[in-house]
């Protein structure tokens, strides 16, 4: 099956964002394809390139990057949410005259249309919040 995920919670608050990444890994292991992960609201902070986690904690950003690098999972931050949370790619950083991009290169910034497209393209949409 083709899956897409919607993540609406911050990776540093609660368990949902980490659970979403684990769900994606398990789904791939069961032979499914993760078409896209769309991050909304505080969920967009999962793409931060500036977050630093203690050595004895799993790095949630790295978990998503591995899914992108190893399995080609598309990671999309909602542009409206991303801007509010300071999650800027090179284009947005230049547009708003900020010093640097703040998101990992594994992530892209795009509009809600990407979520609509993911719903239309996928057999399943799983939402992770809270």
């Amino acid at each position: 099956m083709i899956y897409s995920l919607l993540v609406v919670s911050s990776p540093v608050s609660g368990l949902s964002s980490r659970s979403a990444a684990e769900f994606a890994r398990c789904a791939i292991a069961r032979g499914h394809r993760i078409h896209r992960v769309f991050f909304l609201d505080a969920g967009t902070t999962a793409g931060s390139n500036f977050s630093v986690f203690p050595q004895d904690e799993a790095d949630p950003v790295r978990a998503w990057e591995q899914l992108h690098d190893q399995h080609g999972v598309e990671l999309v931050l909602c542009v409206a949410s991303a801007l509010k949370y300071g999650m800027l790619d090179q284009t947005e950083a230049a547009r708003y005259e900020r010093a640097a991009a703040s998101i990992s290169p594994a992530f892209t910034v795009s509009g809600l249309g990407q979520l609509v497209d993911a719903c239309a393209t996928s057999d399943r949409l799983m939402t992770f919040g809270g």
């Binding site: 069961r30 057999d123 399943r124 992770f128």
Partner: peptide, 17 residues
């Protein structure tokens, strides 16, 4: 893994949070 298996059986999900 069991949650993924459940998602295979149920075609629609509602997330309460």
């Amino acid at each position: 893994d069991g949650l993924v298996a459940l998602s295979e059986r149920y075609c629609r999900q509602m997330a309460w949070y």
